[in-house]
């Protein structure tokens, strides 16, 4: 059934899910929501499976007309979300009526908001996923970002009666200065000791070249021992690639599947959402952790999501 009409798409609004797996061997990146935490919680709030297709709304300007009575949840960036012009709370269920207008007029904090609707957005599965990969025109709505006039359908589903919200203790605080924990490798041995030290001790600024593929950072150059090139290999999520110019690039969901530049470290998975909510001009700093610390952090992260699940519809 028809759920929304796009009045204004904003700079980049796409349909995303948890990503497309099994196709990197053919050069297809996983794509999927950049902020896994906000994405999964917005689905859980409205009683969906945590991977149901939802909207990823980048920065402000998006406006949607509601086409049927249903329930939505908005999480992630604070875009001053409003219903018919009146502010609505984030991180909790919001009942909406046919004819209502949802708008995201201003950026208050973060970079990407997520909008989930009961039943999830209904678009065809492509290679096992509904995630949009705009560069190759795969998934989502015709493989592209939303446009004015698009109609979004939702799978028929039961309406939500109770209200649900993410407990205050589990709300992320988006800051313009973020610490990202990293595990060194796979090619940390290609950098001088000074290079590793520079990487871990400097502030880096998010450049304007920051998108779903990756974030290019500005700051002190990271010197290599010899070459910046390797025989091309795979690129994990969060890999920090350092090309010959010594400037790091953190690679995200729409990254190229393989590449020939050295990778000094990898941002741990639970810190990717924090990075996804930064925008050009914000600053990041990297801190080295062990694999065990990363797993402990992951267990804690999943416990938080479980709490949201238990307290939801």
């Amino acid at each position: 059934m028809e759920a929304f009409e796009v009045i204004q798409p904003g700079p980049l609004t796409t349909i995303q899910d948890l990503g497309r797996y099994g196709y990197q061997q053919y050069g297809v990146p996983p794509s999927g929501a950049l902020d896994d935490y906000a994405f999964r919680t917005s689905n859980l709030l409205v009683g969906n499976e945590e991977g149901a297709a939802s909207l990823e709304i980048t920065l402000f300007g998006c406006q949607l007309r509601v086409l049927q009575d249903t329930t939505v949840a908005v999480t992630g960036a604070d875009l001053a979300a409003a219903l018919n012009g009146s502010p609505i709370p984030g991180w909790e269920t919001v009942p909406v009526r046919r004819g209502d207008v949802l708008s995201f007029p201003r950026l208050k904090s973060g970079c990407r908001a997520y909008l989930s609707v009961v039943g999830g957005i209904n678009v065809p599965m492509v290679m096992g996923s509904r995630a949009t990969y705009t560069k190759a025109g795969i998934g989502g709505l015709e493989g592209r970002a939303l446009r004015k006039g698009d109609i979004l359908r939702a799978a028929a589903a039961r309406p939500v009666t109770g209200r649900a919200r993410v407990p205050t203790a589990h709300l992320p605080a988006y800051d313009d200065q973020v610490e990202l924990r990293v595990i060194l490798g796979p090619q940390d041995d290609c950098f001088t000791e000074d290079g590793i030290h520079t990487f871990l001790q400097s502030d880096y600024t998010i450049s304007i070249q920051a998108d779903r593929m990756g974030y290019r950072l500005e700051g002190p150059r990271i010197p290599h021992r010899a070459k910046a090139d390797i025989i091309s290999d795979g690129i994990p999520l969060g890999a920090v690639q350092v090309p010959g110019d010594g400037r790091p690039i953190v690679l995200l969901a729409d990254r190229q599947t393989t590449g020939g530049y050295t990778k000094i470290a990898t941002v741990i998975s639970v810190d990717i959402p924090d990075l996804a909510q930064t925008k050009p001009g914000d600053r990041v700093r990297f801190r080295q952790v062990s694999g065990d610390e990363a797993v402990t952090a992951l267990r804690e992260y999943e416990r938080k999501i479980q709490t949201v699940k238990n307290s939801s519809a």
């Binding site: 595990i183 490798g185 796979p186 994990p236 999520l237 969060g238 990898t266 741990i268 998975s269």
Partner: peptide
């Protein structure tokens, strides 16, 4: 064996 973060190994 090379480390690719907490979810990948080379």
């Amino acid at each position: 064996f090379l480390t690719g973060g907490d979810r990948a190994i080379f």
